[in-house]
Computed example of a mutant assay.
Amino acid sequence: MLAAFLIVLSEGYSQQITIGKVWEVTEGIHVPESVLYHAPNNKLYVSLIGKDGTDKGEIAIIRPDGQIENLHWVTGLNAPKGMAIYKDLLYIADVTKVITVDIYTGNMVDELTVPEATFLNDVTVDDNGVVYISDTRENKIFQLKNGKISLYMKNVPSVNGLKYHKGMLLALAGKELWAIDAQKQVKVIAKGFEHGGDGIEPINGGGFIVTCWPGLVYFVSEKGEIQKLQDVQGKMNTADLGYNPKENIIYIPTFNSNSIIAYKIN
């Protein structure tokens, strides 16, 4: 079904966003938490927490047309969630560890335990290869730099989704969207989400798509206006999304519904 939504911006003009379901894949998908699109490889990396608990987590690879390439590309993880790629390395948040995988071989090249971490959730990388990892339960953001992990920022309430964008570290802090500069100064871009934010992606034309795990998808303009695009609470989850800027498509993992859904943005 194709749905249209009108976003009214503060300058007095309007921006119309239309989203429509392109495909849905369910085969072999077991509790998907995060999707990451990688343009150079033209592939979707999907973190699968798994139904059976510890040591059943995996990373799958799906093609942008929804065809499965490899459901068991990386195995033996615990409960993998957010991911980020820098050069040839994939960084994965896996409960209390940051796992590093070679994106060409699928081999694990590093495994670092984050001291005092209890629920690592999302990952992003800046232009210099510095990795940032959120810990939702501890309200902290950690930093991986030059092979060492340190605390980057504390007292970030229920911090989940992270995205480095235009020199700023974007963070979903509970029901707010923050922009954190290099001096760790915080600007609240938007607030008022119905639930704590999960995933965030900047999109073509400006603004962001934000998901909230219970089943909400929002558009946030660069001015901070919030518009609810989808509310499927009670029907499925909407976890940490991926975005393909070339095709202008978002990929949403439905967690307990065990599928990945692609939506076109127009």
Rank of each mutant, 00 (worst) to 15 (best):
L172W: 04
A173E: 05
A173Q: 06
A173C: 07
A173K: 08
G174M: 11
G174H: 10
K175D: 09
E176W: 01
L177K: 09
L177Y: 03
A179I: 01
A179L: 14
A179V: 01
I180W: 05
I180M: 09
I180L: 06
D181Q: 10
A182F: 11
A182R: 14
Q183C: 10
Q183V: 10
Q183H: 13
K184N: 12
K184C: 10
V186S: 10
V186R: 12
K187V: 14
K187L: 13
K187A: 12
K187W: 12
V188S: 15
I189E: 04
A190H: 07
G192R: 07
F193S: 05
F193E: 06
F193A: 06
E194S: 12
H195G: 10
G196F: 07
G197Q: 06
G197L: 05
D198K: 03
D198E: 09
D198H: 02
G199T: 01
G199Y: 01
I200G: 02
E201Q: 15
E201W: 01
E201L: 04
P202N: 09
P202V: 05
I203H: 01
I203L: 06
N204S: 12
N204P: 00
N204M: 09
G205I: 08
G205Q: 06
G205V: 13
G206R: 04
G206L: 02
G207V: 02
G207Q: 04
F208I: 04
I209D: 00
V210I: 15
V210K: 03
T211D: 12
C212D: 09
W213A: 11
P214Y: 08
G215A: 05
G215M: 01
G215E: 06
V217L: 15
V217F: 00
F219T: 09
V220I: 15
V220T: 09
S221H: 07
K223Q: 15
K223T: 14
K223E: 14
K223L: 08
G224K: 01
K228Y: 08
L229I: 12
L229W: 01
